[in-house]
């Protein structure tokens, strides 16, 4: 490699190395926030509040964030997670209302959501469009399609007789949505952390050229990453539709920012600064708890937005400030 006289700062996004102290600082902050809310908001630790937090807030964001983790681990980003979610919800509601059985509706919904990912995969792996622009394009097209299909954004309600009680169902006393998240996290977490696929994703995300020069099928890996990510979002779409008993067009975009934030909080917790599923789940919990606690101590929804935004920014700054300039 030829030496340059210049500041050798790389221009590309690389996972920074950060101080070990930071990894401890973040959990400490999390515990402090928990303690603060427990003291300041009496209802915070009540079973009712915690279970509603898990069921209503955690589950959906966790699924989307798991999908996002795949894309970010591979060095990309997926702006169309919401589109995958929406398409799945749309297909689910439409199929159920058309009288098809639950299995068909589930299958159709998963397929519809995953198709969005397949589209991205084609653009990224086939046409070599950067993930940001490819998923941005998908988002636009998805929005247009939803507007056309829903007359500009009118919700499509599930007929009362067609409503499956997915959100309230329990297995061995555990709510079905939680089980679904656990299963999703287990499979994705195992594949990313221990699987051959996860290692390939890791190499691709860190140094795509090295992946290529090591004989990995880099395009195929990228394609699968986006398909798998969309699948997780499709699951979230089914759950959302089953919870609100309706398909509300363009509702998936609300998860985008928080999902990215959660993944990066999770990456900050990791020793190597890598996006990872357990970290992402903690990140989601972190965001949920903060919002919930702020609500309980009487902050308006609007201030919650500001606080969450500031918090995410802070975490990002923390996670990148440990980076040595010479790297």
């Amino acid at each position: 490699m030829s030496d340059s006289y210049l500041d050798p700062r790389p221009a590309r996004l690389s996972w920074p190395s950060r101080r070990a102290a930071l990894r401890l600082a973040l959990p400490a902050l999390f515990v402090a926030i928990l303690a603060f809310f427990a003291l300041a908001a009496p209802g915070f630790l009540s079973l009712g509040n915690l279970s509603s937090l898990l069921l209503n807030n955690f589950v959906l964001l966790a699924m989307v964030a798991i999908g996002m983790t795949c894309a970010i681990a591979a060095g990309g980003i997926d702006l169309s997670v919401g589109t995958a979610l929406d398409f799945s919800a749309l297909a689910f509601v439409a199929l159920l209302n058309a009288g098809s059985g639950l299995p068909l509706a589930l299958g159709g919904a998963l397929l519809a959501g995953t198709l969005v990912g397949a589209g991205n995969a084609g653009l990224i792996a086939g046409l070599r469009i950067s993930p940001f622009l490819a998923s941005l394009g998908s988002l636009f097209i998805g929005t247009s399609a939803q507007q056309l299909l829903s007359d500009g954004g009118q919700p499509n309600y599930l007929a009362p007789e067609a409503r499956p009680d997915l959100a309230g169902a329990r297995f061995f006393g555990v709510p079905l949505p939680l089980l679904a998240v656990a299963a999703l996290a287990a499979v994705y977490g195992l594949a990313l952390a221990r699987g051959r696929f996860g290692r390939q994703v890791l190499a691709l995300g860190n140094q795509p050229l090295v992946a290529r020069y090591s004989g990995l099928a880099e395009r195929r890996i990228a394609a699968w990453v986006f398909v798998a990510g969309a699948f997780a979002c499709a699951l979230a779409g089914i759950l959302l539709a089953a919870t609100v008993n309706a398909y509300v067009p363009m509702s998936g975009n609300a998860f985008l920012m928080n999902a990215i934030g959660a993944v990066f909080i999770g990456a900050t917790l990791n020793r190597h600064g890598r996006a990872n599923i357990p970290g992402t789940l903690l990140g989601v919990l972190f965001l949920n708890v903060t919002a919930n606690g702020l609500l309980l101590i009487g902050w308006s929804f609007y201030w919650q937005q500001v606080a969450t935004g500031a918090l995410i920014l802070l975490v990002l700054v923390f996670s990148f400030v440990g980076r040595r300039p010479g790297d």
Binding site: M257, G261, Y302, W303, Q304, Q305, V306, A307, T308, G309, A310, I312, L313, L316
Partner: peptide, 8 residues
């Protein structure tokens, strides 16, 4: 991130 903060 700043977009979210500003929107808030």
């Amino acid at each position: 991130a700043s977009m979210n903060l500003v929107a808030g």
